[in-house]
Structure formats: C-alpha cells, structure tokens
C-alpha cells in the first residue's frame, strides 16, 4: 500500500474537496501566498487561484464568522486557524454562532464549515503556542470534533467532514505532520464516532487520541517487553460524537483503564471518558480509572521542563503500575 505523510494526506483531501465541489473554498491566515504556516496548502494558490484560496488578515473572529455567513448562504468553507491557541480569538463565532445557529433557527439554517486547526505541544513553542483545546470544543453541543492520529484517518475523517452539514473542528497535531503511514489509493471514508483499536490486549485499556496515541502505543510496547502485560490501545478518532461503546467493550475485557490526553488533566476531556467508564462498566473495574494528562502548569519553553509537563509513555506505564500494580 502506498505511504504518505499526515500533511500529504490532509492536502489530498482538501484538493478532493476543491476539485469536486465549487462551493468549497479555503480561507485562512497565510494559506495562499505563504503556502500555509505548516505547509499543508503548498501550491494551492497556483492551482486554484485567489478566489478559492483566500488569504485573510490576522483576524480570527471575522475569519471564522465570515465562513459561518458564507455557509449559511449555501457555500462550504474550509477555514484554517493557524493554531488552536488562536481559536480563542474566534470563540464567539465558533461557540455562539457556528454551534447554535441551526438550533436557534429551528433548522432554518445550517453551518457546514470545516475549521482546520493545529493542536498540541512538543515543539518548545512556549506557554501560548502549545495548548490542546479540542476538548473544550467537544463539550459544546452543535459542534463535531475530529482528532486524527494517522495519515489514513486524517484523509478519511476529512472526507467525512466535507460531506457533513455541521460545523466541524478538525484538530491536526503539530508533531504529527511528518508522520508516514499507509493510505490506499481506493476511496474510503472514516466515519465520525467510530473509535479504532490500535493494538489488542487483555490486561489494561489505554484510551488516547491525536498526539497521545503514539504515546499509548509506546507504553503498550514497554508493558509487553518489560512486564509481559498486554495493553489494548484505543484511538478515539473523534471526541464528538464519542464512541464510548468501543471503550466500554474493551474495559469489560481488560477490567482496567487509563485515559491519556495532552490537555491539562484538570477539567480535561479525559475526565468525561473516565466518568463514562465508571458509570457504564463499574462492576467490571478492578480499580479506579487512571488518567494521564499535562501537569497543572502552563507549558514551559525549556526542553526538559516541557517534556516533564506533557504526557509521556513513561508516565502512562507509571500510572498503570501505581493504580493497578501491573
């Protein structure tokens, strides 16, 4: 099967969207002449022209809000917010307008927009450029949230997003753009709300998404090689809708669960998943649901400090040992 990077997979899906539907256009800060801050849209301006590849001012609120308006009028905008940290400047448009217009108008209007944005830390970009807010958006009814961790999913989820008539937050992890993976030539889609079991196991379930899937798989390797324990790794793929069935099924088998996210544990989305496990599989649990997330501080700049704050496979292994004695 052919391989490509996450960046190439996303670009391929964007091109498919542009090629297949004249209502689709791209908008964002430096998506055109600059080729995109993370080079996802390299060459797009030359191929599609300035009407469909639109460089905007650095003005996130009107960037998202104008996409909402264009969507209400029947177009299908794809917006790039350069990083999820900047989405805070567009919160009014995302949360108060995009998420609610269909409900408040009782179905008279829909807001079919895809908001692509870049999440996560690990690049020593400091406290304001290393955050993971996808969980915040996942708590808002009316939004859908995709958090791909492989090139295959990046393409398949974006294909589904482009067919969806709802506002979608599509969070790309900054450290995964260069990741290579198999992507078939044949058409496929990855539906929202369907988690994937990345590694089967019987001793403990590790729930992860986006950048933490890689960490979970490393932890599972360590569990297997140094402790002879088999961890089952579940990649949520989307946070809203949330496929709890796959998680509960797994926990019923392993009787142990740890939820790993890159956001701060305090108030993090992992708490929602942990709560659901305890509510729906309480009798199957051999211990409390463990959690691993970022430590309760802003993300620092220095390499060693940043590494200490973000979740790691060592911390996952440690949490499993501390909680379950494995």
């Amino acid at each position: 099967m052919p391989e490509m990077t996450m960046r190439e997979a996303i670009a391929r899906s964007l091109r498919e969207g542009l090629d297949g539907d004249s209502r689709v256009f791209l908008m964002g800060e430096d998506v055109g002449a600059y080729d995109g801050a993370y080079a996802v849209t390299r060459g797009f301006l030359a191929d599609y022209g300035p009407e469909r590849i639109r460089d905007t001012p650095i003005a996130e609120s009107v960037l998202v809000g104008s996409a909402v308006g264009a969507a209400m009028a029947g177009l299908k905008p794809i917006v790039e917010i350069m990083t999820i940290n900047f989405s805070l400047l567009a919160m009014d448009q995302i949360v108060n307008n995009a998420a609610k217009l269909r409900y408040m108008s009782n179905g008279q209007f829909s807001v079919p927009i895809v908001i692509r944005t870049v999440t996560g830390g690990g690049g020593q970009l400091g406290a304001t450029h290393s955050q993971s807010f996808e969980g915040w958006f996942a708590s808002v009814p009316g939004l859908k949230v995709a958090v791909p961790s492989t090139p295959y999913d990046a393409l398949g989820l974006l294909r589904s997003a482009l067919k969806d008539d709802n506002p979608i937050i599509y969070a790309e992890h900054a450290m995964l753009y260069g990741m290579r993976g198999e992507v078939p030539d044949e058409w496929y889609e990855v539906p929202f709300g369907q988690a994937a079991i990345r590694r089967p196991g019987s001793d403990v379930t590790i729930v992860a998404y986006s950048g933490t899937v890689r960490i979970a798989l490393e932890a599972a390797e360590t569990m297997a090689s140094s402790k002879g324990r088999e961890a089952e790794v579940i990649d949520m793929r989307t946070l809203r809708p949330l496929d709890l069935d796959t998680v509960i099924e797994s926990v019923k088998k392993t009787n142990r669960a740890v939820v790993v996210e890159e956001a701060w544990s305090v108030g993090g989305f992992g708490a929602e998943i942990a709560s659901a496990i305890q509510a729906q599989a309480f009798d199957h649990l051999d211990g409390p649901v463990a959690r691993v997330g970022s430590l309760d501080v802003p993300v620092p700049y220095a390499q060693n400090l940043e590494a200490a704050v973000l979740p790691s496979s060592q911390r996952v292994v440690q949490a499993i040992e501390d909680t379950f004695g494995l």
Partner: peptide, 20 residues
C-alpha cells in the same frame, strides 16, 4: 438571517453572506 445576542457577533457573518 437572524438576530444576534452577543454584541457585534453578526458583523462577521454579514461579511460572509456578502462574500458568498
């Protein structure tokens, strides 16, 4: 296209309608 209850929130949407 609606009444908007967060002050200023309708202005970006107006821009988008015009863009369309």
């Amino acid at each position: 296209m609606g009444g908007y209850a967060i002050v200023g929130g309708q202005l970006p949407i107006a821009v988008g309608l015009a863009l369309a």
